[in-house]
Design a protein around this nucleic acid. Structure first.
Lengths: 131, 131
DNA sequence: TATAATGATACTGTATTAGTATCTTTTTGT
DNA sequence: ACAAAAAGATACTAATACAGTATCATTATA
């Protein structure tokens, strides 16, 4: 299983670069040169982050992206959910009506706990602490 | 992301049934009646568990499967690795040579810790505590 | 020796992930 | 005014993993 897919990974790297960059705005062309990520793919990723409010974008010549929050306030878990959708340890059948003992299933409870723990750990990781 | 895929889920259910079954051996036909899992798929899953040493199988008429250990000694994490291969929170690029700062990458360290924690939690869940 | 079971293995359909391609809109320097 | 350089929107394709089938071989028992 993969907790972190490639687009999240690329997102982290891009944001790290943007955070460290001296310039006010960073363009995709600039990022691509540095990070060796396929340009159209990175463009798609940044567009998503921008829609989700993690980046601010500026069109036109000289345009680009900048962080919309301080690095300390950008959480890894937000990048994950932005790129991969909401984080579920399992959508397994025990959680659904198919589980023979809906409601009191022990595995469900245990997995829910694990999920909570995981989410809180991922919420402790900020962009800042990755710089 | 999915920590638990469907075959692991089915595996847990099958083992629960086998553990509770009064009979010494449980056949796939019997399991299928009870659990509404497609027969050839369940057969494949049980064959895997058998190869991995979690079940003992007996061929021929009247044959079937039984647990090869006591329920308290069958760990969820073993089922996961049997069905899904080894558990990796991420095979992300930070862990590989592609990561710009191999060896000292902070994300890698944090994810490795999360992975360790996850594994130990999953090792605390035994088949017995799911009965 | 027919039957009912598992073993082995190859195949198929579907969903997710990863990446491309293209056209539109916006901004700015000349 | 307008060409160039940026992002926005959207549709498409390729690769991989997940879910499930199909079939033939082997084994044990009644």
């Amino acid at each position: 299983m993969k907790l972190i897919t490639r687009d999240t990974d690329y997102a982290v790297r891009a944001l790290r670069f943007i955070a460290k960059n001296d310039k006010e705005l960073t363009s995709v062309s600039e990022l691509v040169k540095e990070l060796k990520i396929p340009k159209p793919f990175l463009r798609k990723i940044l567009q998503v982050l921008s829609k989700k409010g993690l980046l601010k974008s500026y069109k036109g010549k000289g345009g680009g992206f900048k962080l919309s929050k301080r690095p300390a306030q950008i959480l890894l878990v937000d990048l994950i959910t932005a790129c991969q959708g909401s984080l579920k340890v399992s959508d397994h059948l025990f959680k659904s009506r198919l589980c023979p003992d809906t409601g009191k299933c022990k595995l469900k409870k245990k997995l829910d706990n694990i999920e909570k723990g995981l989410l809180s750990q991922l919420s402790d990781i900020t962009l800042e602490c990755l710089l």
